[in-house]
Design a protein around this nucleic acid. Sequence first.
RNA 1: GUGCCAGUAGCUCAAUUGGCAGAGCAUCGCACUGUGGAUGCGAGGGUUGUGGGUUCGAGACCCAUCUGGCACCCCA
Length: 429
Amino acid sequence: MKQVIAAIKGTRDFYPENMAIRAWLYETIKTISQRYGYQEYEGPFLEPIELYAAKSGEELVKEQSFVFPDRSGELITLRPELTPTLARMVAQRQKQLIFPLRWWSFGPFWRYEKPQKGRSREFFQWNIDLIGLNTPEADAELLSVIVSFFKLVGLSSAQVKIFINDRKLMEDQLNQLGIPPERRSAVFRLIDRKEKMEFKEWQAYAQEEGLNTSQINGIVNLLQNTELWQTSPNLIRIFQALENESASDYIEFDPNIIRGLDYYTSTVFEAKDIGGTVRRSILGGGRYDDLLAAVGGDPLPAVGFAMGDVVISLILQEYGCIPANIYAHPAKVLVTTFSNDTLSHSLKLAHHLREKGVNVITYPEPVNLNKQLKYADRVKIPYAIILGPDEIAIDRFALKSLSSGEQIQLAWDEIDTKLLPLLVGERDS
RNA sequence: GUGCCAGUAGCUCAAUUGGCAGAGCAUCGCACUGUGGAUGCGAGGGUUGUGGGUUCGAGACCCAUCUGGCACCCCA
């Protein structure tokens, strides 16, 4: 094979079979978002770097964003996340928008990461946010959206789970241990790594961060205390709200959940594959009550989450949740071509059927029928129409079912009554 | 950005201590030029990711590089 120019590292080519999955995922996300009354929106893919600078977290902006100068020298960022854009869009029209505001989006994002399974440099993300409410029941609504999505695609609570925590709860606990607020982000990082390190290593790391033995032990106890949520009025009300809709099976308190983005203020959550092999988190989100003020708007409470397409697609494939019929066939019928002399008859019939709303493929080269039928079979077109001199002579055409092999002769005036019922209906992809 | 592993036909993989690059599936042709899936026969297909080096000789060894995977880092 000749040299093909390679794709950009970490990008994906969506061949039709992959595109069908992406489109199906989009439709599923749209269905769920709309079921809860959320409206679709979209922002620019290019943003000024300042939008993210102070709000998203050092690492995300400095290490993981695609940033380059445009022709005037201004630094342009390929958006690594949507929430700051959303905050800006809301702040710009804060006086005219109607709150509470429910918006969702599904679009591309870029992060300069090392590509591996479940992680690419260009990916799609479902973002959904509820702005203008600061009740725990608003947080519960977003969690309910997630559970509904999992149920719709067929993921059980034995396969995926949402782990939830409250940063305020953790901050109170750290205060009680005598850890001052300015140490908090370092200690949050410490908590984040606890699971990944050997205990002794982690202990040493904690000492380096300036924690004394009783503080370290206090944190260890904290992270093992699965009943801690009962001291959080916020989490209690969230769990209560979710009891109304049999979502509780999917949701579990986990004091280890902290999350990397700096703008979360209270509830934080993350969904994971617990029954399978995919280690990365499926989605993450939480409450961010200060972000609107930070981008120049009036203060507004908000809660939301983001789900990337890469991990969820892997998991859906792993559990066999992707319907087989989403990439069924490119058309309902192939109108074959017998010879150059009969070509116009075939094209005319094909056009007639298309005007009736049928998805039709023609074979604009009179190769032998053998080949044409084999083609139809291989691309899974369910019917073939054969229109040779014999049929033309009696003003009819033959319809062959590729699944049964049966063939019938039809007259043109039987198209509406006999042919269309077979060919219209089930969606082609 | 760090460490480790891998890359051979369209796909999945083989090739003994460094000694003639192969198989299955797929493709194409024929049996079967007015009927697909099955079967049989035959054919085409490769700068072994790329670029250097060692060697009489490299798919294999060495260096660099690209791409992917695993563990970090981070996160959707």
